[in-house]
Design a protein around this nucleic acid. Structure first.
Lengths: 214, 214
DNA sequence: CGCGACGCTAAACAAGCGTTTAGTCTGCTG
DNA sequence: CAGCAGACTAAACGCTTGTTTAGCGTCGCG
């Protein structure tokens, strides 16, 4: 299986090997010699192509960001359930990049910020479109809702190992996605609370204090 | 401010310094000499107390798990909004442990699994209680709902840097929590979708295939 | 053909790592 | 007071790290 390795540029092969290793073991936990062996080259060649280990990281960051950004663009306009399905389907072969992404998002790096902001922008656009189309409800603070929807979307991805474990699987499978669909849609269709008591209570509790929104 | 450092056992001081460093830079990215300097001891003393760097990690794991577990227990029985408020309030001083927790959850370690399972168990109990009390709605798959609620709860915590950034703050502040309350409660009270179209469509699409639940 | 450019490697480099060793100091116990 | 036990350190150990250096082979261009 899995080709797309022999016909790649040496540079690209090194980069892919690095993404895989960094995703599995973290940046500091991976040595250039490990990556070199995976890519079938010498350690010195990595530095010939990327100047330094840090340079290699930047190239990996940029590559992973590019991957998910183009994927993200394609999705704008799709509804949330298709989005979820597509996202989980693309997991199977893109596992390495997802590992890398997870570590990136918990670290603080400029690339991490760019990536999150791009996800947020995608979610915001999608949310606005769906509200305008009457598919989703109006929200009192669309921006804040977009932020939390982005976080809720990324949570299962970053913690997908635990998601799979909780469902008795070792990885994200089709059956897991199928079992997830109804409960998640239920949550976002009927809500979790049986009535409006908590919401109205919170509204009253917050009413005298802050009124400007910015 | 911040005392609780001079009066601690040397062992505890080392452990706390390690949690802070591991949380900020990761396990592989932190040297024993760094931790030793932070704790005001020699590197050799760390090994005298913890046998090896790996032993130190295990002690840190156990300590962080213990911290969040006791916190988790106290919360069982509280409603979700109080839970959210408490969680975000406890962030300010427990920042180091939270950084550590985030890295733990994306890594694969037995301690990470234990911790997640404990969170999941807490969420499950809370969900069942609230449903029984009529505060939350019945769910077709309570277990799956509990899993996703746990993931949705952890997402904003793990990605709290991005959460803060998206709200124009540099850290989780009171005003951020206040601005979050209504949108989140709204989401979990009314849901996101305007009608049941998507849910019923999904139900129909999935009806012929799997009927046993496990 | 000659020759620089480029992809690439082997070997060596200093620095830093986790860990070991040997030893000092202090406080308790007999 | 002798002596053991435990907290603690300085120095050294061997090894791995990222990086440098020098050089090999093979193209394409004049």
């Amino acid at each position: 299986m899995r080709s797309a390795s022999d016909d790649l540029t040496t540079r690209a092969r090194i980069r892919d090997a690095a993404v895989a290793r960094f995703g599995q073991q973290g940046f500091a936990g991976t040595s250039l010699r490990q990556i070199a062996e995976d890519a079938g080259v010498s350690a010195a060649l990595i530095l010939h192509h990327f100047q330094s280990k840090e340079g290699l990281r930047e190239a990996c960051d940029a590559h992973v960001v590019r991957t998910f950004l183009s994927e993200n663009e394609q999705m704008t306009g799709a509804d949330a359930s298709r989005l979820m399905r597509d996202a989980l389907n693309s997991v199977e072969d893109r596992g390495a990049a997802l590992d890398y992404l997870s570590r990136m998002l918990v670290d603080d790096s400029p690339a991490s910020d760019n990536l999150f902001d791009a996800f947020l922008a995608g979610t915001r656009t999608m949310l606005r479109e769906q509200i305008a189309a009457g598919i989703m409800r109006e929200q009192t603070d669309v921006e804040a809702t977009a932020v939390y929807l982005t976080l809720y979307g990324l949570g299962p991805v970053i913690l997908r190992r635990h998601l799979a474990r909780a469902f008795g699987e070792s990885t994200l499978t089709t059956s897991l996605v199928e079992r997830s669909t109804i409960p998640v849609l239920e949550l976002f269709t009927h809500g979790l609370y049986a009535d409006e008591r908590l919401l109205t209570a919170a509204k009253e509790a917050l009413s005298p204090s802050n009124r400007e929104a910015k």
